[in-house]
Design a protein around this nucleic acid. Structure first.
Lengths: 349, 349
DNA sequence: TTGTAGGCGTTATCAT
DNA sequence: ATGATAACGCCTACAA
């Protein structure tokens, strides 16, 4: 319907004000309105005030799509992660959101599933709708990273170390080493490992690094590797529970277990309870993550600052986008051992 | 480094093809291209094929922002939730994503924090960028809902029952009743409640409903209410842990506790462990949620289908948007008691 | 400092 | 079944 309120200043408020309505109301040109409202230079303070007040009065908000079309920028960051339902992803999203919200950017979310190849294509799928992207646990490797970088969209990768693209990760090897060294120092000599090689068909580098750390700590403690103590828990509670059962059926049972994730540690605790094995008396358990419920169950674990990683990823991206900073190099985040009550010296018996 | 493609057939491939490039390549008008690519009626099959092949060759993808500006539709759904870091929100997001992805919609995420008022403003903040919104746990009440409905953006609210806007929720009263009835039937007579009135300054209706259910089950079992057994756990692990400590210091301790969330139940389990109270021998515990780690710790709980709620919310929204279905009425989702090993008959002693 | 006017890439309305 | 062409609402040289 024609909302034609022809008249000037103090006129009625249109359905949805456009920049022209504001210009008319303030008695300036649309260009001036555009500049004033975006705090660009070369606008007299008095003019800016006048424009502001008109905009307020008319409840004017620039149409995002028109602005995007005209400027070629979206003020939106895309986030792609394998699954949304993990504590890890939620925490990451929260960290990213923290900084985007503060800078007036929107967050567009996509899940990639656990497949590997998808990432390139998926990334393309929202490329035009975002100014930059945070790629969580895509494990694309440097070749694919170079391709993404070449495509132009700003991106930062979380979870692996890359050179073609800015990346952020924790030192997984060190984390695992910390955990296993702790167990060795407690006096354990039969220390099992529950990891996960088969996360979907993704080729994650994380398990390898944590495995390395486990081996290193073993060597440092002059302990020898025993393959019967190394099992795949598929990074799930149930997978680890099954792995633990197998461990418990060994003639020489381990006195300690290092799990590559807290959730897998929960699976071990479950299996232990079922088998009447007491933690930490009969078995010490260490996880990796510091999942929020781990404290409640006294799980000793390796903490990684996920939310901070999300924050850092987002702010690096914004630095590049808004202040065209150079793409930052890889950044390692700190890990630390959190000792709680699931670990103790091995039982003398 | 250029676009190395066999540009044999027709002309070279432009930087980023526009609809005009395709039209030229296919020898038709832009209008026809637009129609052909969107499968609109009145396009000859042969023409459509021609256009398709040109589009493929030029790797043409319609610019989202231009399309949005011209059509007034964004093919984006907004999701607003108080915090991203809860299992509940993550699950909800996953459910919404499930259906959006299948229909080619984008998902825009915003957190509202725990304040109450924000919702109206926050909702406005991305209104123009979305075709519809899923409002999770905003507890806006029917008055605000009517305002939102009047504003025009399609919306569905999750977590409370409304009439002004389509809504989805579980029967919290029934859920709590199921939990407490289970305890009563086991023979418990001193059943404590750990809830949470003070979630930020949000006025949530959920605690009241669960409290109602608790009271009803008590009445049905001819048990009398004892205010010393009702504590506020603030819906956090630590809050519940403190509440449990107070409970344990009572001269007449409860033999069972119903917690309004699984996480609070974890807090109780923690406190129990610290106090040397054995579950379920000395204390039965029931939670609410069926958080994924609850199974590992044998927590008896009330399951609510969060992911399904997200799916339903999204698909209702899409029905309205894509097939202008009428706004659906409120929908109650099923809850069910999951019995595990944290509950048993009270100890004779 | 401010104004003018030409895009930005689609969609959608009319004709044809 | 197709084709012209006017919006869509803003940004941004360039001019004044």
């Amino acid at each position: 319907m024609g909302t034609h309120n022809g008249d000037h200043a103090r006129g009625p408020i249109p359905e949805r004000a456009t920049i022209e309505d504001v210009a008319r109301d303030a008695g300036v040109s649309v260009a001036t309105v555009s500049r004033a409202l975006r705090d660009l230079p070369h606008v007299a303070a008095s003019t800016k005030a006048k424009v502001r007040s008109s905009a307020d009065r008319l409840q004017y908000v620039a149409d995002t799509n028109a602005a995007r079309l005209a400027s070629g920028r979206t003020r939106t960051i895309g986030l792609i992660a394998p699954i949304m339902t993990s504590w890890y992803t939620g925490e990451m999203v929260a960290g990213v959101e923290d900084v985007l919200q503060a800078h007036g950017y929107d967050l567009l979310i996509t899940t990639s599933g656990l497949r590997h190849r998808g990432e390139a294509a998926d990334q393309m799928s929202f490329q035009q709708r975002v100014d930059g992207a945070v790629l969580v646990d895509v494990f694309c490797g440097d070749a694919a990273a170079a391709r993404i970088a070449a495509a132009g969209t700003a991106a930062v990768v979380v979870g692996e170390q890359l050179t073609a693209l800015p990346s952020i990760a924790v030192d997984n090897r060190l984390g695992a080493e910390l955990a296993v060294r702790h167990l060795a120092q407690l006096g354990h000599r039969r220390i099992a490992l529950i990891g996960g090689r088969s996360e979907g068909d993704t080729v994650s580098t994380v398990p390898d690094q944590r495995e390395d750390g486990y081996w290193k700590a073993l060597r440092d403690a002059r302990l020898r590797r025993d393959r019967r103590l190394e099992h795949d828990g598929a990074f799930t509670i149930d997978g680890a529970r099954n792995a633990a059962r197998r461990l418990f059926s060994l003639s020489e049972r381990p006195t300690a277990v290092f799990c590559m994730s807290d959730e897998m540690a929960y699976g071990v605790m479950h299996a232990a309870r079922d088998a009447g094995i007491s933690i930490p008396r009969d078995l010490s358990v260490v996880g990796f993550d510091d999942h929020p419920v781990s404290e409640a169950f006294g799980l000793t674990t390796v903490r990684q600052p996920v939310r901070d990683m999300g924050r850092l990823a987002a702010s690096s991206l914004l630095d590049v986008l808004d202040h065209d900073a150079p793409a930052p190099p890889h950044r390692d985040m700190p890990v630390g051992l959190i000792q709680r009550s699931s670990t103790a010296a091995p039982n003398a018996s």
